[in-house]
Design a protein around this nucleic acid. Sequence first.
RNA 1: GGGCCUGUAGCUCAGCCCGGUUAGAGCGCCACUCUGAUAAAGUGGAGGUCCCUGGUUCAAGUCCAGGCAGGCCCA
Length: 1050
Amino acid sequence: MAFEKVTPRVNFPELEREVLEFWQGSGAFRKSVESRPEERPYVFYEGPPTANGRPGFHHVLARAFKDLIPRYKTMRGYRVERKGGWDCHGLPVELEVEKELGLSGKRDVEEYGVEEFNRLCRESVFRYVDDWKRMSDRMGFWANMEDAYWTLDNTYIESVWWALKELYGRDLLYEGYKVTAHCPRDQTSLSSAEVAMGYEDVVDPSVYVKLPLEDEENTSLLVWTTTPWTLVSNAAVAAHPEVEYATVELDGERLVLAEELLQRVLGEGGYRVVERRRGTELEGLRYRRPFDYVPVEETENLWTVVLGDYVTTSEGTGLVHTAPAYGEDDQRTGRRYGLPTIHPVRPDGTFDERVGPFAGQFVKEADAGLVEELRERGLLFRAGEYEHAYPHCWRCGTPLLYYAKRAWYARTTAVLDELLRENERINWLPEHIKWGRFGDWLRNNVDWALSRERYWGTPLPIWRTASGETVVVGSVEELRELAIDPVPDDLHRPYIDRVRIRHPETGEEARRVPEVLDAWFDSGSMPFAQWGYPHRGRERFERQFPADYICEAVDQTRGWFYSLLAVSTLLFGRSSYKTCLVLGHVLDAEGKKMSKSRGNVVDPWEVFENQGADALRWALYTATSPGNPRRFSLEQVDEAVRKYLLTLWNTYAFFVTYARIDGFDPGTDSVPLEERGLLDRWVLSELNLTVKTVTERMDAYDVTAAGRALGEFVDELSNWYVRRSRRRFWKSEDDVDKRAAHSTLYECLAITARLTAPFTPFVAEKMYRNLVVNAEPGAPESVHLADWPRADEALIDHTLSGDMAAARKAVTLGRAARNAAGIKTRQPLGEVVIAAPEEAAAGIRRLREIVLDELNVKELRFGSPEDVVSYTLKPNLKVVGPKYGRLVPQIRRALEEAGPDAGARAAAGEPVTLSVDGREVTLAPAELLVEAGEREGYAVERERDFAVALKTELTPGLREEGLVRELVHRVQNLRREQGLEIEDTIAVSLGGSERVRDLLRGGWGEYFRSEVLARELVLDGEPPDGSPELEVEGERVRIFLRRVGRVGAA
RNA sequence: GGGCCUGUAGCUCAGCCCGGUUAGAGCGCCACUCUGAUAAAGUGGAGGUCCCUGGUUCAAGUCCAGGCAGGCCCA
């Protein structure tokens, strides 16, 4: 057995491609799933993307987080199946195809032909599937894409049909009115996105209308509207429950309106307030409707004051004319109060025959006539003009009408309590989503409008007879039984529209309603529909429901997060997911949203090819918390490479280099723990603490903290453990100490490879296969088949970890002191004095060798702060001057001479007593200025109660040693310049400075030879011409060296 | 207009839940040091009205209220 050679000059993208090949060839993903017991499932649901667009950077972000947790859970021993999925239906798909065909609107589509149109829609959702697969593969996103679900499959549609039939059977599916933005020219509804595309400033009538109260003489509600034509359909007047309303007397009549709007509506003076009432007190007041063209069956609350939170006092009168057919708020209010939907407008925007003189007129053109009629009847208070932004059809420019249409609803409000209860049980990350954005949305829940008057979608399985009887079909089987016409192979429109059925009881012929289903209901049905449940896949559904984990970006709050929760609560009474990790959006380095139009998008492929997927993943996990909006820049990825991946890789390469030289075999050469050194035990303690922290954080889905903890360990391992242990690896004897170092570093790397596997799966795989698969018979072939490490509590030594922290603190301060004193580290010093709290001092004492070596100092002793710091005392002249007058100069002198004790006392805030001019003078702290300074002959650095002082005196002996060490350093540089390998031995010929040659002839020769691996050392001859001449600490030397052999070679 | 989030060094972020020493880290910049695993590492320096205003408190980056700016979702 031998470890494969590892180059420190690693090319991560290339490494990743190799690993990808290995995964492919070995079926690593499949094995990682199947090697875990079926009885221990951990369930992840893939929120299906639509593949009619190329995957972008934000998809990489989502997939990075989607992938991480399943990989981790797999290593924890769970079976994580990860069925992929694709969202195939919906308006965006249709609009894309419309655009390609140059069509505009439903009329165009129907002329073009629904059959061909839908064929193109179907085609388009497969268009970029390969791109998605390639991107997912390349970034190490593991999911079962071969067996993915497609929302357009018949089996999927059939499941959704079953769900709709269930709802219908439980009275949770009904037909009602829905207010939509309607284009009267195209005679079609527009989506909210389309509405947003067409706002224009227009001038509309601004009309204040009096609605006389039935039970209060000569008193009218004053309402305001910019759409007089909707007054024909008035059903109520809405007031805000908390707003204060005034009844005023003006020109002999009484008007009711919001008090704070009196001035704006009525102007200065001329009126008198006679009564004030809260909105709640107005509720139920009856008034006379403005127009009675349309006959209405009277209901309890019709033409009364109703309450609505949405009423504002920012404009109008604070009393809102309410016509449920023509406004969303109105419609909601109407439903709450059981108001009828008065709807005398035809799809082309003209009044129907009921509106007598205005029948056939376009409603907006009827405004003037209607206002005139109000004036004649004395109901008009004032009429003017109003300029505001109003939506127009983005295709034809016609002003849109908000307009009620028949629509199919899921009665989500019936399960509102359950929705709230289930929301409480979901582990939302970040937590504020639960009762913030998502909770608010739930609390304001309205029934879910499910139908869409479109073409490419799951067709509603609803059939209607001429007499209005409804049949909802729950499966293809059932449809076949009822069908009059043959059932098509493709369940989509237009084929399904041709199937007539017979009503199972009356035998009456029925036709399908024309609508298709909101695509959100498709995706919300994936927990069961992905298996074709309940017609098939029952077992799998039961095992894979609910999901333990889902993860999408925050824009899914009202999208998939809601549709998933709503569908499963309606059907099963419970949430279909337990933990939901919500990702923030990706912004560019300037904090602007990444978008194609801004041209600031990052191409993931460039990152994959330049820095690699591991680096990108690491940056995404550790740069900021997943829920935060993320300012992303390529520098973050560079940093991930430099700080994490290369540090880890170089540590790994270092280990393998020496393990190969020494033929270290972890199976046979492992050193028992008792025989390991302090440093070994320390790093093993840190390793196990890290295992604990990372495990804990991962269990809490705190990915960022987990990654950062791991990053810190890798830094400690490389920059403290390996740096401090380097000599142990390259020394020539193969003793227990060396093998202990090998064993320890091996263990750290083998475990780190597992810890980093979910984060950076590629480099983890590469390391693991070389370190573990090569060395441990029976080890699984992939790190992703390995078990997650368990922390070994016995190896955690809190005392030792604390000791090392103290020692490193002392080293930090000592180095700072050296820097401040301008004495380079290579120059040895005689003594370091450390003042530290008891516990830290004890730790440093135990690790004194490390401190001495790091600081390059001969002796270490401990002292109190006064030993290393001196305080200078001065009188505070402002206070002392007036008090002691001419004694001041003597006090000053006495303070200078007072000695360290007095300084220390004063520093501790105690008074100082002096003998001045034969009498005792006691100076209070306020009378003293205490200045801390360095003690003579020491370089001191302090932090709080921790101080380190280096004795700066250089004895001849120390100078000699400094000189020799400098010489060694220079020779090492020469070796490197001459391209020698680490293990090459050399011959050295040195001329010049007699002093240097004397030192090497004496006691320093041996040290010098072993440091630079000199087998021969010639000090008497002159080096050949052209040998470099150097100046070392003021001594001129000429040095010649040549390679003579290799360490270990005979 | 409403809801939610964010605002701390030139940049990316900790710290805020639970108030308490001199507000930290990484990157970048400057100086020095160290180095035969490293694309590194170390020390110091420059760099902070902790978005603003007010309040609570002995004490506020942290709690409360009101603003401002950015982001997202919705109207």
